[in-house]
Amino acid sequence: MAAPVIATVLTLLVGSLLFAVLGYDPLATLQAFFITPLNSLNGLSEWLLKASPLILIACGLAVGFRANVWNIGAEGQLIIGALAACGVGLFYPNPDSWLLLPLMFFAGAIAGMAWAAIPAFLRARMNTNEILVTLMLTYIATLLLSWLVHGPWRDPAGFNYPQTALLSAAAMFEPFDYAYRLNASVFITVVAVFLMWLFTDRSFLGYKMSVSGAAPLAARYAGFRESAAVWTGLLAGGAAAGIAGMAEVSGPLGQLSPQISPGYGFAAIIVAFIGRLNAFGIVLGGLLMSLLFLGGEAVQMNLGLSAALTRIFQGILLFFLLAADFFIFYRLRRIPEHA
């Protein structure tokens, strides 16, 4: 428990110094960063809205990370999930059917899994490096999205903007209140956190994955298949990212455009590690990361800090968090010189 406290104190100190040196009032800046975004109902709604996909994806990724399966392509899986879900939403014959939303949910999940199945197959069969393959596939996914919204799926009535038509009401999650953007998709995340906890903490499959991660030779000794860990890890991440993508198009976006994610897929990797690959840790990590997103925007708008400066500040916090973790487990020691 000491690590996050130490990290927070260090971040506040170094951050204040940074702001002061650059001529901003440290206290006002910190308040704008951390307090103001949560001061209103809208702020709270935005906070949860942004935390939800981060937590959802991080839960899926952590399943793999625990078994040393490094899926860093959640961003691509998110995009493909959003594509598939939006495709169903746009082209399903009856745009008012209540079936639309569940169909889009499954389309998103399956598409995300299919995208993650490519690196899983290559790793399990040919022992390729899944870090590289998942990352490369992210670029392909981004370009595929770009091609679709500039080409075949472009809204004919959209004034030539690169975006699809708006989804029908039945293809969208209804907001709790039309004044704010938060919608029912947060419950998906709540369920995902519970499933993640159940899987990693209680299930036998999750147990086997943690053995694979902590001691590969012991997994081999017990006869747990490595390929099972690879498939489970990548498919869990793919499904979570695909669903997150679906929740974005069916939630705040309502349509596809070339930029549908502010980097949720990559930020979720950090969230997973801040949360120490643990379900409840990930919830806290996701809320923190979301607040950093919001706070960064707020100080840019209210105090005119540059985008680079806010990102430096975010980097400082993450750096101290991970470093404090490290120094809890390891200690620097002077070793005497050789005699």
Partner: peptide, 16 residues
């Protein structure tokens, strides 16, 4: 690392 998973508790290593 082979007969037992070092960071796991003994009850977890029983499950192995």
């Amino acid at each position: 690392g082979r007969g037992a998973v070092p960071p796991h508790a003994l009850w977890q290593n029983a499950v192995l």
